[in-house]
Computed example of a mutant assay.
Amino acid sequence: MHSIKDIYLIRHGETDYNRMGVVQGSGIDADLNALGQQQAQAFFQHYQDLPLDKIYTSALKRTHQSVNGFIEKGLPWEQHAGLNEISWGIREGRTPNNDDDQYYRNLVRTWREGQVDVPSEEGESPVDVLEKQKPVVELILSRPEERHILIAMHGRAMRVLLTHLFEKPLHDMDTFGHQNLCLYHLQYDYRTQKFNAIKANHTAHLHGLPDCM
């Protein structure tokens, strides 16, 4: 059995919702915008020669579009709803306004204070998201023959996942930064059953593109 698994974990490229500062959770299945497509292409051009064995994405099309270049190469691909973004509840997708902005600030502060089981209104909590992710993580790690994999997912969900992989408290999830089409290069050692970060929130492949959120 191979002892090391390389995991290339990315956040999806920019959507118009990102551009406008609109919260989009699992209930918003938005397309990448023009810049998001450029980010996806730039990432593909930079990493197209990676010896990838499998692509994993969420069930939302913005992650599919972010790795489309690799999918078109004919690489094996699985999508899992367990990798979807958190559901932000009844407010997601709405035009930004002061009431909603304050609601989200208060909610995130509640999570940072340790109450990570508090859900958004008619949505999910970080604990809910982690419970959906755990079976997908177990599945991925049960396949040591897949030595190099690419995972495309979402900002908040990525923060939740990284706390789990690095055995950090869930309320520390905001210590993991991200932006559109950023890369976390992780290695999993089957002997120690530990993850190591090679790159974190890495965006050198986007050099020359406009700044993104």
Rank of each mutant, 00 (worst) to 15 (best):
His2Gly: 08
His2Ser: 12
His2Phe: 03
Lys5Glu: 12
Asp6Trp: 01
Ile7Ala: 10
Ile7Ser: 10
Tyr8Thr: 09
Leu9Met: 04
Leu9His: 05
Gly13Leu: 08
Arg19Thr: 09
Met20Val: 00
Gly21Cys: 08
Val22Phe: 08
Val23Met: 12
Gly25Trp: 05
Gly25Ala: 01
Gly25His: 05
Ser26Pro: 05
Gly27Cys: 04
Ala30Trp: 03
Leu35Gln: 10
Gln39Cys: 12
Gln39Tyr: 13
Gln45Thr: 14
Tyr47Leu: 00
Pro51Asp: 07
Asp53Trp: 02
Asp53Glu: 06
Ser58His: 10
Lys61Ser: 08
Thr63Ser: 13
Gln65Asp: 03
Asn68Lys: 12
Gly69Phe: 11
Trp77Asp: 00
Glu78His: 11
Gln79Leu: 12
His80Gly: 02
Ala81Gln: 04
Gly82Ile: 11
Ser87Pro: 02
Trp88Arg: 01
Trp88Ala: 04
Trp88Cys: 09
Gly89Cys: 05
Gly89Tyr: 00
Glu92Gln: 14
Glu92Pro: 01
Asn97Gly: 09
Asn98Thr: 14
Asp100Ala: 13
Asp100Thr: 07
Asp101Ala: 08
Gln102Tyr: 10
Gln102Leu: 15
Leu107Glu: 01
Val108Gly: 00
Trp111Glu: 11
Glu113Ala: 14
Gly114Trp: 05
Gly114Tyr: 02
Val116Met: 00
Val116Ala: 10
Asp117Thr: 15
Glu121His: 13
Glu122Lys: 15
Glu122Ala: 13
Glu124Ala: 15
Ser125Ala: 03
Val127Leu: 04
Val127Phe: 01
Val129Lys: 01
Gln133Gly: 03
Gln133Asn: 09
Gln133Val: 08
Gln133His: 04
Lys134Thr: 15
Val136Tyr: 03
Val137Met: 12
Glu138Phe: 00
Leu139Met: 07
Leu139Arg: 15
Ile140Trp: 06
Ile140Arg: 02
Leu141Val: 07
Leu141Met: 13
Ser142Glu: 09
Ser142Pro: 04
Glu146Met: 03
Glu146Ile: 02
Arg147Ala: 05
Arg147Thr: 14
Leu150Ala: 06
Leu150Thr: 11
Ala152Glu: 08
Ala157Lys: 01
Arg159Val: 03
Thr163His: 03
Glu167Leu: 12
Glu167Arg: 10
Lys168Asn: 11
Pro169Ala: 15
Pro169Ser: 11
Asp172Arg: 12
Met173Glu: 03
His178Ile: 15
Gln179Glu: 03
Asn180Gln: 14
Asn180Gly: 04
Asn180Leu: 02
Cys182Lys: 02
Asp189Cys: 15
Asp189Arg: 13
Arg191Lys: 14
Arg191Cys: 09
Ile198Ser: 07
Ile198Asp: 08
Ile198His: 07
Ala200Arg: 14
Thr203Asn: 02
Ala204Asn: 10
His205Gly: 15
His207Phe: 01
His207Tyr: 10
Leu209Ala: 13
Asp211Gln: 00
Cys212Asp: 04
